[in-house]
Amino acid sequence: MLPSQQFPAPTSGRDGAMAALRAGTAAQHDRIEALLGLGGPFGHAHYGRVLQGFFTFLAGWEKLVAAALPQRLLGWAGGQRSGRVADDLHMLGLEAPTAGAQLPAIHGPAQALGSLYVLEGSALGGQVISRHLRDQLGIEPHSGGAYFHGEGAATGARWRDFRATVEAELAGDDRALAQAVDAAARTFEALLATFQDRLHERAAA
């Protein structure tokens, strides 16, 4: 598990908690997109390694988030992320590895929401990736593309609900917001560390 560390980040929510999270993690967001390389052409082998990286990360991360959230917010710890990745790996005949992930430390609801910001936000990009999978590799949600398809047409509504939850829980509480931004940045760093071990050719580039 990655130790807690401080990242440069806004500590005031004057412009909104979501704006602070976005500004505080912009650099890491760009780095993970470049490393995953799913915005352009990619092949089956690369896609399989990406899925395996997500599975190793999510299998442990989901438990950390669930343990850190209070009962009233546990609905956000639900979802079926790791299960969907496992199904995709099975459909593609690939191993579902359980070791090799780096995980961020997550303690308390503010840090859990900050970490969730990373994965909930990635679901929006997953809608674009889902179309790439269909067009480039012929992979549909039922044939190995369930994870990135996610909630499908309901993804936008889920994101709006999450944004409302974040603002209600964090806006106006600078200490909690700073914890959330730090946790989001550490989650990005953990994902980067996890994928750098699997996507050697991208990491080297």
Rank of each mutant, 00 (worst) to 15 (best):
M1E: 09
L2E: 14
S4Q: 14
Q6E: 14
Q6G: 07
A9K: 09
T11C: 01
A17K: 07
A19V: 12
A20K: 11
Q28W: 01
H29D: 05
D30L: 12
E33G: 09
A34H: 14
A34G: 06
A34P: 06
L35Y: 02
G37S: 04
F42A: 00
L51C: 01
G53H: 10
F55T: 10
F55G: 06
G60C: 08
E62M: 12
V65Y: 00
A66N: 08
L69I: 12
L74S: 15
G78C: 13
G78T: 13
G79P: 04
G79S: 05
S82N: 08
A86T: 10
A86D: 09
D87G: 15
G93P: 00
L94G: 11
P97D: 05
T98H: 05
A101Q: 11
L103P: 03
G108I: 10
A110S: 14
Q111V: 09
A112E: 02
G114S: 00
V128Y: 15
H132E: 01
L133H: 00
R134S: 11
D135H: 13
D135N: 15
Q136I: 02
G138K: 01
E140H: 13
A146Q: 00
Y147M: 02
Y147Q: 00
Y147T: 01
F148Y: 14
E151D: 09
G152E: 02
T155C: 02
G156K: 15
A157E: 12
W159H: 11
T165G: 08
E167S: 10
E167H: 10
E169S: 10
Q179C: 03
A180G: 04
V181Q: 06
A183S: 11
A184I: 05
A185I: 10
R186A: 15
T187R: 01
F188P: 04
A193K: 06
T194Y: 04
T194F: 05
F195T: 03
R198F: 04
L199G: 05
